[in-house]
Design a protein around this nucleic acid. Structure first.
Length: 273
DNA sequence: TCCCAGGACTACT
DNA sequence: AGTAGTCCTGGG
């Protein structure tokens, strides 16, 4: 059992749409990261965490919830030029940018295109159950998200059986690109955001939105900003700015290297607030 | 029964 | 270079 300080918003961070595979039951959250199952519970000033594997658990948790970063500094930076974001920022205080695994993020966000959250979660769970490692913890069964090795020979029609629909060919093709070396997920760490965006968007099924999400959530490239309908709503309501080009320009000029986080605050505020 | 939803591709001008 | 039409699925 691990205890960490309850100094961020665990619930919002898990449920605000960054990750798809989690379950909640009376304020107890279950997530699966890397090679283990985590059950998290808020208790007064602490967050209590149980896992089937407690080795390096603290490091893994701190990294996953991005707890070593100074978010107050980021807030200050965002507010320097933009006072109107205050309400969104206040609402989203304590929200952390979850640091996810690149391969899993790639698969998850390819599935996410033109799709709804429950359906995305369903597909990811089916894929995990079929191809991921089975874990038993406290008399319950869980499945890790499969590794590249576990998915590298999966056929299109097998993905289709996991209810991914027309995205089956995109998954197959992305995995094939990794197999033949065209897509190297490790290389992306060293790229600047623009190069990384262009690199990812060369592959079928990865457009601007999907590529941005991958860079934001798996590579902590906080200067990329996925524009979706919620962000568009915020921009229209708060600044009367419309059109993707204008939104991009405004976002880039105002938030710079933390654009992605500013966008995430807006998204959370508009969708849940 | 019809129509989308947190996109991206293809096939047209 | 820009834009309709199309694509599985699950739910209203």
């Amino acid at each position: 059992m691990l205890k960490i300080k309850n100094n961020f918003d665990l619930k919002s961070t898990i449920t605000c749409g960054q990750i798809f595979r989690y379950s909640v039951s009376d304020d107890e959250f279950t997530i699966i990261i890397k090679d283990r199952v985590l059950i998290l519970k808020v208790k007064d000033d602490d967050i209590i965490i149980e896992s089937n594997n407690e080795e390096n658990l603290k490091e893994i948790v701190m990294d996953y919830f991005d707890l070593n970063r100074d978010y107050l500094e980021i807030e200050k930076e965002i507010l320097k030029k933009d006072d109107k974001l205050k309400s969104a920022l206040k609402f989203s205080r304590g929200l952390k940018m979850i640091h996810q695994d690149p391969f899993e993020t790639l698969i998850a966000y390819i599935i996410s295109q033109n799709n709804r959250v429950p359906s995305i979660a369903n597909s990811l769970n089916l894929i995990s159950e079929k191809y991921g490692e089975k874990i038993t913890f406290k008399d319950k069964t869980y499945y890790l998200f499969p590794t590249f090795e576990q998915l590298k020979n999966v056929k299109e029609e097998d993905f289709r059986k996991c209810k991914v629909g027309f995205r089956d060919k995109y998954l197959f093709s992305a995995i094939n690109s990794i197999k033949n070396g065209d897509l190297n997920l490790d290389k992306i760490y060293d790229m600047d955001s623009e190069d990384a965006l262009n690199y990812l968007m060369k592959f079928k099924g990865i457009g601007n939105k999907v590529a941005s999400c991958i860079l934001l959530f798996a590579y902590q490239k906080f200067d990329v900003y996925p524009i979706d309908t919620w962000v568009k709503k915020f921009m229209k309501d708060s600044y009367n700015i419309e059109g993707e080009k204008n939104i991009k320009e405004f976002t880039y000029n105002n938030y710079k290297k933390f654009s992605g986080i500013a966008i995430q605050y807006m998204f959370n505020y508009k969708r849940n607030g």
